[in-house]
Amino acid sequence: MNMKSLKTLALAGAVAATTFLSGSVAGLAQEVTLKMHQFLPAQANVPKLVLDVWAKDVEEASGGRIKVEHYPSMQLGGTPPQLMDQAIDGTVDIIWTVVGYTPGRFPRVEVFELPFMMTNADATSRAYWDLFEKEMKDTDFKDVHIIGTWVHGPGMIHSKTPVNGLGDMNGLKLRAPTRIITGLLGELGATAVGMPVPAVTEALSKGVIDGCVIPWEVTAALKVPELVENHTEFGGDHALYTTAFVLAMNKERYESLPDDLKKVIDDHSGQEFSAFAGRTQASADGPSKQIAVDRGNNIITLGDEEVARWKEAAQPVYENWIKEMEGKGIDGQALIDEARMLIDKYSKM
């Protein structure tokens, strides 16, 4: 081989090497690590059955170019009420939280937490997403990118003394998850004690509260069946209450993604994901309830006549909320009417 051929070969090799290295750097530049932060232990139902599943699906759909690091139990610092601000300011990339942990900050969401509003978690989560897109995306949640909106299964009462009827609520100190439920418990005669759900176990064991309102699914992780003996469910088509959640992403982080990775996030966001999350969370109610049954705990189900009394007692919650919304320039009655219409529509599907 002559000198000219050697030089040509060397030049070709250099170009190939440069192209390879450039391609590798470009490939590396497209790899994204997203930190996901939330308040429950990793083994709890939502982290295990919803958040980890979502993260795995996103990673696989991106061909490994997106990596989701899951930090449970507030491992990155702060308290559950600070999660939304962590997503807004970019302290973390993604958060899952109870919207009501910051009372009054996201007023339109509260329509789904009004008493006896929800039917089941699938239908109500679908309705929540629809109303989010129409009424909340550019108002309540304008500072974050929302991935999913959902609610848990029927909320109920878990107490140290039996709640067989409305009169048994008088004087009970019950943990409340949100501002709306705090108001509801007050109208029903109880004393509401607000706290994030991870605090329930210690509060029950130390006698700070006499019980709590939570769905069945989280009772196992909180050891509630070991700390109380009575559980009151509500008959009929509508639950006593539910709690609204969001899976939210830092807006700038989302917008900084290349279009194909944005599409991966988009494909794993929206109504279907929200319905999956709500439905999956609610599906864990049965196994958790069985723990209480196996312990011989007292399972109470209120009939239609008694539930009607609770609904009547809860009516001021609606009236007060509508008045508060008017003060914020929001048509609360219109939100109630639309939420009911949407929930009814999806409940019939």
Rank of each mutant, 00 (worst) to 15 (best):
T119E: 11
A61K: 08
V109M: 13
I146L: 10
P316A: 07
V246D: 11
V144I: 13
F132G: 00
T280E: 11
I66K: 03
S205Q: 15
K348D: 10
V25P: 03
P198R: 06
E312G: 00
G332P: 03
L240E: 00
S256P: 02
L9Y: 10
F132W: 02
L227A: 06
L83K: 03
F112K: 00
A314N: 00
V53D: 14
I181R: 06
E233G: 13
L342Y: 07
T161D: 14
Y346E: 06
Q30V: 07
G186P: 08
P103L: 08
I330H: 12
M3Q: 14
E31P: 03
L6Q: 12
P225M: 01
L40D: 13
R126S: 04
G27L: 12
N320W: 07
A199D: 15
E305R: 08
A313R: 12
A16S: 06
A26R: 13
I146V: 15
K35I: 09
Y128V: 03
V193S: 06
D260E: 14
G78F: 04
I88P: 07
I157Y: 11
K48V: 06
A199F: 12
L185M: 06
A123P: 01
K173D: 10
G171S: 01
G235D: 10
H231A: 15
S274Q: 04
